[in-house]
Design a binder for these strands. Structure first.
Lengths: 230, 230, 230, 230
DNA sequence: CATGAATGAGCCTTCATTCAT
DNA sequence: GATGAATGAAGGCTCATTCAT
């Protein structure tokens, strides 16, 4: 797990109902185990053990291993999207937002190759993850188009290009076979592919990435309930 | 299996030593089973049965299940590369060769979604497949660069973009959620990403795909031997 | 559940103390679930859910799953015996009472094969059911003997014959492999086995079955209490 | 297991192909385990262990636990039918053959209550057993009818009566709650139920049971093959 | 080389039962 | 009395792999 995300993912969730707290603990354990063993080789027993519970408890919350993957996917998606969105605060250009997102994912793969591979394995098992992320990417794409920075033959084609390229780049980086600055170069290619001119693409992709500050606590339903009651 | 490939893959291999013919039969059976069940759910016993042999025989030719996947990967790679290369006969422009390759893969995914998904699963288990294909892609990329049609920040970035995008597009198509002309639009994006101007990219991607004629028989070692002897 | 019994079994029990009403609701739910899944495949959790309660509640009323089966057995036995006895009102001949009982059970199996199989499964898990029923059968047997209609080598042998034959006939009927009039023919055989002459057996078994009127409400302890208090 | 059957069931099968020999060993082990634990509580692991093999081997021969029960049923059916048929050698009267069969089964339940209960449990899980036995019973029934000893309203009714009664009697005997001579008395009732006169029924049921000699070896396919080849 | 029976480690999954709230 | 989350012991079953024939 990239250090920069650890806190956001592991942070104990207060203010959740008991059932939900257990669920989150299980998902956190699953992230650890998926990361260590890979999705295919991870076992429910180990997830339970890591969470300090028993197998039965896992099945109280998830009907199948795949559903565990879905739980993991949702937590990761939520964390990633929120963290990256937070770091884009105040960036109004679609092109730059896109460049930030692209490079951030590749940067995360550099920080923790193992984690990146897990992320992609989980994505395969639980497409929800990509779907969630795609929402944010699409928003930036549309912003860029509206701002006349981008021009694409179709949103679908552009999305496939962006998502596929970033994933492939993450793999390359995780494998250790990427040159330095790979993130920036991939971003350059992609911005160009989205219709920008060479110089502009290069310029935008070269700007320093913004800081990546810890996520603010999300509210659980229990907390929401309490607030509503107030 | 896309009809257009079936003959090339299933054709009985004559002129091979017996050992190798058996091996090919097993690989062909494995392709069928992987396609039907997916790599993870395919069993050695079923592959053997489909090939009309027994488990033991499989292990006489492959040390592990993964090696079977490698065998499948090699056969598919060889078939794909040869067929696509053949169809590019006489195309001298790197840009157009690239456009043809990109669209052909996406077209194959349209022809047989199941097969496409299998292809990608096998790629994950046996990276040889992608490596082999990448060789051809890289050649076209370099050709395009040499011809000043392409301009890229780095070969690695361009390759990740191309490979990742095509895979993602194949997935989208296989899932059935791609718009019509997806192949052409993805190709347009990618050519643009490789440095071409909008109009040129669009124009090249819009040319009709060349025919996709059956592969000529490949020579087995036995035939080679015979020829050498002559 | 045979329609003819449904009302007697499902009828809400008024006038019961709350604790007992809950208990009955659970037993009724168990009958539904046992009928749908079979005893072995029924789960406490589903029984609770069907009753609109939780597992814990089930265990507040029954120490084990088997005890639930016992509860089911008692309710079914009570219902069956009472309904059949009611329908025998005014029949003074042991032989005819016996013929009615035999045919009624087989008729019930025709009405609802699934329910019949459940009945026998529950009997295996909770012999109380058969014991209860056997009491009524034995009474009719003795009546027939006293009236010189029956003549048997031993009560035990006769009881085994009657109970075993009826169960087997119910199974055959439930399986759908019994000819028409099976109930009547089995009854004829059994009456003959109990010592009657052919003609008499056949004649008695051929009489029309009496109507099968809904059961009158049974009193619960609360009602009893109230009555005692009066 | 009743001593009188043990030798017939456990005898090592020579002249069987290896696969079949293993299968028989597994079935024999299953009989032991079903007898000791009951069908529901028997585990595949224990069966394998008792047979000196591993669980995987069991599943090489039987797809499910129920199929193991079927294997047991077939072996028991074959053994029982052959042994009883052998002991009826030279008995030409259908009535007496029937009386012998009825009493023999009940006698076996006396010899080994546990085994009898197992037999009935297995019958429930694998109806093949009863079906096989029923064939022999039906033959005797028809013989008796042809000889004018029996008269029944329908074969189906008679069969249900015989099978059901014998099973119930076996249960009663196995439970230890049957009076002495229960077998004879049940047989008397049943012969009467099949249409005989009281005196005749009693007389036939009172004859001494014939000896119960060990079964002659059955030929396995390998032996058959060898013989054919000769 | 082919055969195919045997292996065996180990996973997923179920569910009766408990117990703190 | 009701709740329902948690338990945990087991068991069925799979399948890649081996090896004697």
């Amino acid at each position: 797990m990239p250090e920069a995300l650890a806190e956001s993912v592991w942070r104990p969730r207060r203010g959740l109902l008991k059932r939900e707290r257990t669920r989150v603990l299980l998902v956190q354990a699953a992230i650890r185990v998926f990361g260590a063993r890979g999705y295919a080789d991870a076992t429910i027993q180990e997830i339970a053990a890591v969470a300090g519970m028993t197998t039965g408890t896992v099945y109280n919350h998830f009907k199948t291993k795949e559903e565990v993957a879905r739980g993991v996917a949702m937590l990761l998606a939520e964390t990633l999207c929120r963290r990256i969105t937070d770091s884009q605060q105040g960036v109004a250009e679609g092109a730059q937002r896109m460049a930030i997102g692209i490079q951030r994912y590749i940067w995360l793969a550099e920080q923790s190759p193992q984690w990146a591979l897990m992320l992609m394995e989980v994505s395969a098992a639980a497409p929800d993850l990509l779907a969630e992320i795609a929402g944010y990417v699409l928003a930036d794409l549309r912003l860029g188009v509206k701002q006349k920075a981008f021009r694409v033959p179709s949103e679908a084609a552009a999305m496939d290009m962006i998502n596929g390229s970033v994933q492939q780049a993450m793999r390359t980086v995780a494998r250790g076979s990427a040159p330095a600055k790979h993130g920036r170069e991939v971003a350059t290619c992609l911005l160009r592919g989205l219709g920008m001119e060479w110089a502009a693409a290069k310029q935008v992709a070269s700007r320093a990435l913004p800081a990546f500050p810890p996520m603010q606590a999300a509210e659980g339903p229990a907390a929401k309930k309490a607030r509503r009651a107030a």
